[in-house]
Nucleic acid binder design. Sequence first.
DNA 1: ATGGTCTCCGATCAAAACAGTCGTATAAAA
DNA 2: TTTTATACGACTGTTTTGATCGGAGACCAT
Lengths: 159, 159
Amino acid sequence: MLKLSKKADYGLMALQHIASNQYGDVAQARVVNTKEIAEEYHIPVELLAKVLQTLSKSGIIESHNGPKGGYLLGKNPREITIAHVLESLEGPLGIMDCSHEKDGDACMQREHCNIRTPLLKIQSSIYQLLNNMTLQDMMGGTPLITIQSVATEQQGVER
Amino acid sequence: MLKLSKKADYGLMALQHIASNQYGDVAQARVVNTKEIAEEYHIPVELLAKVLQTLSKSGIIESHNGPKGGYLLGKNPREITIAHVLESLEGPLGIMDCSHEKDGDACMQREHCNIRTPLLKIQSSIYQLLNNMTLQDMMGGTPLITIQSVATEQQGVER
DNA sequence: ATGGTCTCCGATCAAAACAGTCGTATAAAA
DNA sequence: TTTTATACGACTGTTTTGATCGGAGACCAT
């Protein structure tokens, strides 16, 4: 349950790879292309291309056309949240159909629905979790976000 | 993204309904059948039946056959976690394919995978969230679990 | 005791979402 | 101008999901 799509998997892998080449040991920023990533992680080139195009449209990465072209991060890894990446590739977070619908929608159960409120609470918690973890946190041996830090974040404490 | 299946939605609604009739205002425990729930929330009878059967197998509810039959909760609402309900209906929680696989599995990216560890961390956090919220929390006006309480829970504090 | 009714139960079918593929167009560097 | 890269759209096969059907078993009234 709650499985991420392949697009999301591939997207995150690619971002981690791009970030490593741009901010990693090698001081020089290096443009990396689709084919290189696809071969490194054994994923279909065309599908990865589509994923990268989507990320590019969202401003998460920027594309450079032509020979020696490829992709670079569009922002600092600290500013790229997992939530933004996933929403870009899979659409807005919504654990149920009526998460983002307006009043008078097509949900037959709406008026008698007894689980909407608590589920929205869960959804909000998951979103906070994903929104407080960045690409930076996924790189290197950097310690990941903990539940505690999510809690403090909710209280308005800066990271 | 991360949308729950209809089965999960229906299951949670039904459980809330059963619990309300068993532990609600009416002191007398009342057996409620599939048809009644289906009509109340406008969901297909047969599909709901299947969902309830699954929940019954998991011991979350218990079935009573024959006329005047139906379902009752198998445990106290405090002991029925959302995680257990969802896993019963949708299979084990796994935000990626390789969440529960053994070594030497079919994941082509496994050896070069750079996102497995952080994603497992996220998965673990989500699981804690779902495992610390019970059917009791979903009933009535009872305050729901908060992020803070999840954090304290992780530190071993009793609810 | 037995028939009838009501329920749970297992197998089956159709629709939708997803992963992956193909071909072509466009843009930049050599 | 040729090469090499991304950008874009349409298409196909597969998996998952949602929904449906017919049957088997249990209870209650007669």
